[in-house]
Design a protein around this nucleic acid. Structure first.
Lengths: 215, 215
DNA sequence: TATATTAGTGTCGATTCTACACTATTGCGG
DNA sequence: CCGCAATAGTGTAGAATCGACACTAATATA
């Protein structure tokens, strides 16, 4: 009933964030190109913890929302060895990562738009694409978009995140009605004065860090 | 970046079916009680194939709808070894399994209502409970319930399956309107005459074996 | 032939969704 | 300081969908 075999159990994490009006993934350099952060499971470590550890060690990012995506076992496993990959995705709030990834002792990193990944990661059934799809579908029935927002944000910014992830433009009034009815955000009281126009009211998540299901 | 470690990678499958107006799971005997069908991954084998193989070998059931559920790594892993379990669930059509599991050379088996599992499997975050939840939520946005139906079935039977899985009673007319509007089933032309009452029209899935997403 | 039992069918009000346009407030430049 | 450019913020009405609800139809059996 029990036993053990030579196994290559990798964990890979697709770290996603909104940058420059696009959904982007953070990649780390490997000798032959770019890859997602990840690595092996350590003895006694649990999968969620390992995903978080690899993400933090390789990118310096902490404070991400992490969720398991799927477990892959490509048929082309190395001879005599099993290759199994447990995939996660991480959502980074806009104020949880620097504008440009600083390679402070760590390997080189790059943000890549998910719509234009390097060849090695461009795959219609790959982790990043799957993560994007999962995220887009969760927009409809959860408050997951808040995980991509900074601590304080405007409704226009939140709408932009929804539009970027879903790829569809939304009506401003309908969006506001719908979001406010969810009772998941609250006005902070002050406003963002950015640019030569009327300031926008700033909101914050009511239950920050928590993803609620809707309806 | 690559390597391998002593690892206990199990696959477990929760085989689910509607029996006696309940959702039940098929369990196999182990020395200390009951467990879900499952076992280890073989070299060169892919996870889906392994799940199907263990299910077939241990229960004799083929022709199930299989879907990966989640990958678990309990913190209480045996000392020095990692315990990782990839969980699947299997949906058995009503005509794809015998009324009582025949232990033809195989170990003993039992169908257990998911609401009354043996202690060893009763777990609010366990595989069977999770599979039940996944199935119930998929009722709302897919045609997955058809995987639990025999080849030909009545609308009343299909409604009963929805009610059993979701735990909610449904309005007969609204249910029929909704299902027929999905264009996922078609009348076979003949009727089921069972008992002293008006016979029911028999339907079949239009795209049998395939689970469509709704809307 | 009467009875019991399940199959099968439509409407209406309530709710939700969707499309749609103008006023408000600021910064900046002339 | 005044006008302009730019974004914020707000309500309504028609369409579509949802949900409640009750009777007739067809068969087996006694």
């Amino acid at each position: 009933m029990t036993g053990s075999i030579a196994l290559n159990l990798r964990i890979e994490v697709a770290p996603l964030a909104i940058r420059a009006e696009r959904l982007e993934a953070l990649l780390v350099r490997e000798p032959t190109g770019w890859r997602l952060p990840g690595g092996l499971l350590e003895t006694g470590e649990n999968l969620d913890a390992a995903a978080r550890r690899h993400l933090t060690e390789q990118t310096g990012l902490d404070e991400a929302y992490l969720e398991q995506l799927y477990t892959f076992s490509p048929s082309e496993s190395a001879a005599g060895k099993l290759a199994v990959t447990v995939a996660y995705y991480a959502l980074l709030a806009r104020d949880a990562f620097p504008d440009e990834p600083a390679a402070d002792g760590r390997g080189q990193m790059v943000w890549s738009p998910v719509a234009a990944l390097p060849d090695s990661l461009r795959d219609p059934v790959g982790i990043v694409t799957l993560a994007h799809r999962r995220l887009a579908s969760k927009l409809a029935y959860s408050t997951i978009a808040l995980q991509l927002m900074p601590e304080r944000f405007t409704l226009t910014e939140l709408q932009a995140v929804h539009e970027i992830v879903s790829g569809e433009t939304l009506d401003k009034r309908n969006f506001r009605k719908r979001i406010l009815a969810l009772d998941c955000i609250e006005a902070t009281g002050d406003a963002a004065r950015r640019g030569g126009h009327r300031p926008a009211r700033l909101y914050r998540a009511k239950r920050s860090g928590q993803v609620d299901f809707i309806k």
